[in-house]
Simulated scan of single mutants.
Amino acid sequence: MVKLMELEWRKLKRKMILSELIIYWGILMFLPMFFIKMVSAEFGQSYSTIIQLMMSMQLGFVLFGASLINQVVIDEYKNKTISLSFGYPISRKKLVMAKALFISLFVFLCTIVSFLLSGVTTYLLDQAFHIINGQPTAEDITSYFSKMIVHSLIVTLISLIPLFFFGIWKRETIPTILCAIFLMQFQNFSFLLNVNLNTNIVNTVLCSLGVVSVYLSIKMVDRVGDI
């Protein structure tokens, strides 16, 4: 499985993906402070409030996951290069499992790095310009790191929701991107519509959909994965 994942890395358009990744990191490093200064100063009341803001901002990596699905799955179908992979003496299910694991691991690690960069940048900017009231407590730091792990996993699972329907089955790039945008903005839509949704329940449902999407991708690839 590790070798199959390494193969996915070698097939990836790495310059394009790394350039996209740098843009994501660059934006999310400075977005919390920009949001406080230009949109709502309420999030600058304490470090505990800005941590909640930063959690929601990292959902941007759901869109990055859609980009990976496009390259790792959809492009291979469209370019017919996946026929070579299906010609290996390895089951299609194992190949799709390797692709799903590769996307999951990539999104998870990149989200973790983004959390770290965003946290350090936010702290340094606050020390320089005194935007957030007070200083981070030990409880704030512990909370941030624990939520960083959990939320990175949540982002990873949500990013996999388009994998089966738009990736393996329909093989459509634009709908995959639109689905990711909707998912990352879902809670904002509920706010605009004045619908009160429990965040934990929403995340649980979305993560479950991500797991189901991966399961169906592996289970159904022999039926819907023909070129």
Rank of each mutant, 00 (worst) to 15 (best):
T49V: 04
L68C: 04
E8C: 07
R10H: 15
G26N: 04
I51N: 07
W25Y: 13
S46K: 03
S85M: 14
I51K: 00
I27R: 07
S67V: 12
I74P: 00
K78M: 13
I36M: 10
L53C: 02
E6H: 11
I50F: 01
E6Q: 15
L95G: 04
F86T: 05
F86W: 11
L59D: 06
I50E: 06
L84T: 10
G60I: 01
F61I: 00
S19P: 03
L12R: 04
G44M: 04
S19R: 08
I23P: 03
E8P: 02
F64S: 03
E20K: 11
P32G: 09
E8I: 02
M29N: 03
R10A: 14
F43V: 02
R14E: 05
M33I: 13
R92C: 07
G44C: 04
R10G: 10
G87P: 00
S85L: 15
L21H: 05
L7T: 09
A41R: 13
Y47E: 02
S67K: 05
G65V: 01
P89D: 13
S46F: 00
I23K: 01
M54E: 10
T49R: 12
S56D: 12
S48H: 06
V62C: 07
K78V: 14
F30V: 15
S83P: 00
K80P: 00
E8M: 05
I90Y: 07
M54K: 05
G87L: 05
E6G: 09
Y88F: 15
T49E: 14
S91P: 02
Y77T: 08
F30C: 13
W9D: 13
F64I: 00
L18E: 09
G60R: 01
F61M: 07
Y47P: 00
L28I: 01
P32D: 12
S40C: 01
R92Y: 03
S40V: 01
V72S: 13
V73I: 15
N79K: 15
E76I: 00
V72E: 10
G44N: 04
M38R: 14
I51G: 06
N70T: 10
L68T: 00
M33E: 10
L18R: 04
T49P: 01
M57A: 06
L53R: 00
A41G: 11
V62M: 03
Y24D: 08
E8G: 06
P89Y: 09
I69T: 06
V73T: 05
V39Y: 03
L7S: 12
S19M: 14
F43Y: 13
M54N: 11
L28E: 08
Y24M: 14
Q52L: 15
N70I: 11
